[in-house]
Design a protein around this nucleic acid. Sequence first.
DNA 1: ATAAAACCTCAACTAAAGTTGAGGTCAATA
DNA 2: TATTGACCTCAACTTTAGTTGAGGTTTTAT
Lengths: 170, 170
Amino acid sequence: MPEKNRTDLPRRELTVGEVATRSGVAVSTLHFYEAKGLIQSMRSRGNQRRYPRSVLRRIAVIKIAQRTGIPLADIQKELSALPNDRQLLASDWEHLSAHWEADLNERIAKLTALRDQLTSCIGCGCLSMRDCPLRNPYDELSEKGTGAYLIEHAGEEQDEATGCNEGSAE
Amino acid sequence: MPEKNRTDLPRRELTVGEVATRSGVAVSTLHFYEAKGLIQSMRSRGNQRRYPRSVLRRIAVIKIAQRTGIPLADIQKELSALPNDRQLLASDWEHLSAHWEADLNERIAKLTALRDQLTSCIGCGCLSMRDCPLRNPYDELSEKGTGAYLIEHAGEEQDEATGCNEGSAE
DNA sequence: ATAAAACCTCAACTAAAGTTGAGGTCAATA
DNA sequence: TATTGACCTCAACTTTAGTTGAGGTTTTAT
């Protein structure tokens, strides 16, 4: 029966193991987050990690951001760009969460648009390069300049001009 | 000026390069997809890949599925589980797209729930393990039995019972 | 016939987000 | 005090979705 009282003074610093169980992330992940600059730790004389309780809040924020689909590198940037850099204030949370909410909304809008196109194309199945909205992802295009549009439309004139519902006309 | 007429008989088999430009994916990606069993090719006497035109439709379907967030391995499974396995019929598309639509809807619902929680928590920021809906992702839980719930709630009684809006109470 | 463009294979590399293991140290308890 | 569980570092491995490069062959056009 490990993880016992451990001199349970009301408010001590936490060990990695304690942070791990209380936050629900693995010890190796805490090491990893530290290496990536997402969290910091103090060390005991014996070089073991010791965390202030505020790290739990920080990890909670990281996990929420991840759920919204933000990559760790971006989370790190935003956390470290905070005025103070260490403690997460309520105002920080307000700032971050508002930002992430906007991000989430964008991704939801994108997926919803895709879903609607898919819905309207289920009965069709033409996938025509010219006519099918599924084949013309302009939104993708504007979000990153891959040049996909130009590539996808090269040779368009004489190719793939299949009518709707032709099945497998090969 | 490469990629010229190349004996432009009305309907020939396509080379990798042609498939690449017409589908908008790189040649290396076509190799990769073939290695993963997502597409197949015939070979010329000189061992070069030759594709039937139907491969363009197949790639279109793969790309759409990817946009919805389906991993390639799953796409491969679904494509290879098709009655016929080679040509994509309109009925196949109907089947696949209906399935993916359901999948998409689920993901949209999840993100929307998260967004709503985020919205309601922006002004709060308590992130309380006990009270904050953002900290209790039951949906995640039911989708994969990570045991996150139990871990996240271990030691709940005496810890992290922070009230709302306490800022950084460290 | 020959040069250039396109193609081939195979191995190695990339990025993200971690996990696993080896070899060794620290700390709390019996 | 000794043991055991927790901890340390560092390197290597995992997965997904590809990309890059080396070294060599095939096609096509001139």
